[in-house]
């Protein structure tokens, strides 16, 4: 791709700074956890930390695609809820059904992603409103379908995807299946964004859609594909969450905002043009480390919300300051 506007190139450099910063935050927060609770330095507990953070990381990677294309995806949490409820109803506790149903779940995700993308690209509805609409719609559908309470059951082979921990693995000792999926999904997201022409097109669209169009980038398909990636990531996260803890009507509540926050902590610029998968990875690990830290500190729930707000402002504010200095 030679037709990419020049404006994209400097953003690569900046995205590496984003990574460093989020990595730094993560290391500091995890160090604080380790001070409070030294056993978090053991491989086993670190793996468990990753297992629990896996859904958020995967959501953030998906959200990143949409953010880079210049939009938001507020429907991710609703998709997670739909996936968990649908899996339980469709599988109904029958292990033989697990794999066919997982295929069906991805098909549902694909449909939601295509719908989001088409509404934004063709109907020109701003993504924040479009995905707000699909959020209500998908959530309502999931609840109407299940009657407002979980039905059916998840068999062990489905639960294992989010729950099983492999023992006696060389080097790391224990290895949760969720962590394998986490690594795979992150690598895939990173490859798609940073190693393919598609990734460059996505950055170009988010940076300046008009310029990208003039340069021959198919803006609409690119934008739609970002929503598809995001919805598929939400399906993956939903499978892991359902596996980790079972069926619940609240499974996805609030996750979309956490995913956006994680991307932003990871240096992604809202409304597009700048960001990296590594940044989203460490951004979400930082956020999750923060939750864990606040848990371990035993602070009242209320203060945790406030601290989260302060840290979000601080992280984004700091990155604004750094960029101001560098330009």
């Amino acid at each position: 791709m030679t037709a990419i506007p020049d404006t994209v190139r400097p953003s690569r450099r900046v995205s590496i700074r984003g990574l460093n910063f989020a990595l730094l935050i993560f290391v500091v927060l995890y160090a604080m956890i380790a001070v409070l609770q030294p056993n978090y330095l053991e491989a086993g507990l670190f793996m468990n930390f990753l297992r629990r953070a896996a859904p958020l990381v995967i959501l953030a990677c998906g959200q990143l695609y949409v953010i880079l294309s210049g939009g938001f995806d507020l429907s991710m949490g609703a998709v997670v809820t739909l996936v968990v409820l649908a899996a339980s109803m469709l599988i109904g506790g029958d292990p033989a059904m697990t794999w066919p149903v997982i295929v069906a779940l991805y098909a549902m995700g694909l449909a939601v992603g295509l719908a989001n993308g088409a509404i934004v690209a063709f109907l020109k509805v701003p993504s924040i409103i479009a995905t707000l609409g699909t959020m209500l719609l998908v959530n309502g559908l999931a609840l109407a379908w299940s009657g407002g309470a979980p039905r059916g059951d998840l068999p062990d082979n489905f639960r294992n995807l989010g729950r099983l921990v492999l023992r006696d693995v060389p080097l790391v000792g224990t290895l949760p299946v969720a962590v394998i999926i986490l690594v795979g999904a992150t690598l895939l997201a990173g490859w798609g964004l940073h190693r393919t022409a598609y990734g460059k097109r996505l950055l170009a669209v988010g940076d300046n859609p008009r310029a990208a169009e003039l340069a021959g980038v198919p803006v609409k398909p690119t934008r739609i594909s970002a929503f598809v990636v995001s919805a598929l990531a939400a399906v993956t996260a939903g499978i892991l969450i359902g596996g980790f803890s079972g069926v619940s009507v609240n499974a996805g509540r609030g996750l979309e905002l956490q995913a956006i926050a994680a991307c932003v902590i990871g240096g992604a610029q809202l409304l597009g043009g700048r960001g990296s998968v590594a940044g989203a990875l460490f951004g979400s690990l930082s956020l999750f480390a923060l939750f864990t830290l606040l848990n371990l500190l035993g602070l009242p729930q209320a203060l945790r919300d406030s601290l989260q707000g302060v840290i979000l402002i601080a992280a984004v504010g700091a990155s604004v300051l750094r960029h101001r200095r560098s330009t």
Binding site: Q37, N39, Y40, L45, N48, R52, P55, I241, F244, S245, G246, V247, S248, N250, A251, R253, T292, N295, L296
Partner: peptide, 14 residues
């Protein structure tokens, strides 16, 4: 939230 419940209890166990 089931995931949060499980996580919280794990934290206390840890």
């Amino acid at each position: 939230d089931r995931a949060k419940t499980k996580s919280v209890v794990e934290d206390y166990i840890n």
